[in-house]
């Protein structure tokens, strides 16, 4: 019906689907390789530590003979490579070895501590993401005016404040001053939701604050960038209401950078959890690690490090996939 027929461009949908499939496959294949490397690094670094498991198990005053006997019994004299392969073999069977100090196996200790830390990390991430989205968008929409300045200033303060200090101030304010939250300790969900929640929300907030501050700045910059783009004018000019422009058109594109930053910050969040668990006296992975280090319990230290590393790799894989879902073109670029 039109005289001007559309020029036929070659269909490019097929190749892109191939890119995405290849990208996911490569990431999935790469993950075990990374994990192997991580396991080796953890093993070697901990092996190099001056801590002697025999001394940790038998006490400070054990004689050389009994220490040597202990080493022979546990295969500590074998070459590094042999011990690493044995460690890997155990790892594949989800056996993290034994604690030399405590009667429980490392697997059991980690199993006890992990749920608490996961709850803490998930809650902190949810809080940080929610907070940074709201504040970042408000700041971007009021760019240069007072709400933006207030949000940016507070974010800068919290991003640069040391976490343990925020934790101590928080305890001072909410537990000692206002008495609304416990100053530390953990109640499992079986103790009732409100007990559980009040025991974990404080640590989660403290853990989330620097993270939320960093994310707010990223979200603000990213949304402000996106709002200035031509396609926003196209949508507004076509009469699409502002809320729909922001939520359905802008946010999806604006979240690409924050999602990447999220992946980067997961590591910082994990090490933050060690600190926060110590400050709030929570029996999570962080506390387990600290006691393990203090007691020279290399099995425990190694177990926590491995689980943490695996979690980090898995989370980053998930973040990469989320990034891919938001920005399918990255698959082509990453070829």
């Amino acid at each position: 019906m039109t005289t001007a027929a559309a020029p036929v461009a070659p269909a490019r949908r097929g190749p892109q689907g191939v890119h995405i499939g290849r990208f996911i496959l490569r990431r999935l294949l790469l993950a075990p390789v990374i994990l192997l490397g991580v396991a080796l690094a953890v093993f070697v670094v901990i092996d190099l530590s001056p801590n002697d498991p025999a001394r940790a198990a038998l006490g400070l005053f054990a004689d050389a003979q009994s220490r040597a006997a202990f080493a022979a019994e546990n295969g500590l004299d074998d070459p590094l490579l042999v011990r690493f392969v044995r460690f890997l073999g155990d790892l594949v069977r989800f056996d993290l070895g034994d604690s030399v100090v405590r009667p429980e196996s490392v697997g059991h200790l980690v199993g006890m501590a992990l749920p608490l830390t996961v709850q803490l990390l998930v809650l902190a991430t949810v809080l940080a993401v929610a907070l940074s989205l709201v504040l970042g968008i408000v700041a971007a929409r009021t760019e240069g005016r007072w709400p933006d300045r207030a949000i940016s200033t507070v974010a800068a303060v919290f991003q640069s404040a040391p976490q343990f200090w925020i934790g101590l101030l928080f305890i001072q304010l909410f537990a000692v001053g206002l008495g609304v939250l416990p100053s530390g300790g953990y109640q499992p969900p079986s103790a009732g939701f409100s007990f559980w929640f009040s025991s974990i929300v404080g640590p989660a907030i403290v853990l989330a604050l620097p993270f939320a501050a960093a994310m707010t700045r990223v979200v603000r910059a990213s949304v402000a960038d996106e709002l200035a783009k031509d396609y926003v004018r196209t949508a507004v000019g076509a009469g699409v209401p502002w809320r729909a422009v922001l939520l359905r058109n802008v946010l999806r594109n604006a979240l690409i950078t924050p999602v990447t930053v999220l992946g980067v910050h997961v590591g910082a969040l994990m090490s933050g959890a060690i600190l926060v668990e110590t400050v709030f006296n929570l029996p999570g992975m962080g506390s387990l690690l600290i006691t393990g280090v203090n007691q020279g319990d290399l099995g425990v230290v190694r177990g926590v490090a491995i689980v943490g590393a695996v979690a980090f790799v898995v989370v980053n894989l998930l973040v990469d996939l989320a990034y891919l879902a938001l920005n399918p073109r990255s698959a082509e670029a990453a070829r």
């Binding site: 783009k229 031509d230 396609y231 004018r233 196209t234 949508a235 507004v236 000019g237 076509a238 009469g239 699409v240 729909a244 359905r248 058109n249 999806r252 594109n253 938001l326 920005n327 073109r329």
Partner: peptide
């Protein structure tokens, strides 16, 4: 906007949302 005055912009690549399909962009209008 849109109903009284429609605008055809200069640079079609940047004037369309890179993250949405053409169908989604047309449907929402």
């Amino acid at each position: 906007r849109g109903a009284g005055i429609g605008v055809v912009y200069q640079d079609a690549l940047t004037s369309l949302n890179p993250g949405m399909t053409v169908g989604a962009q047309l449907r929402q209008v």
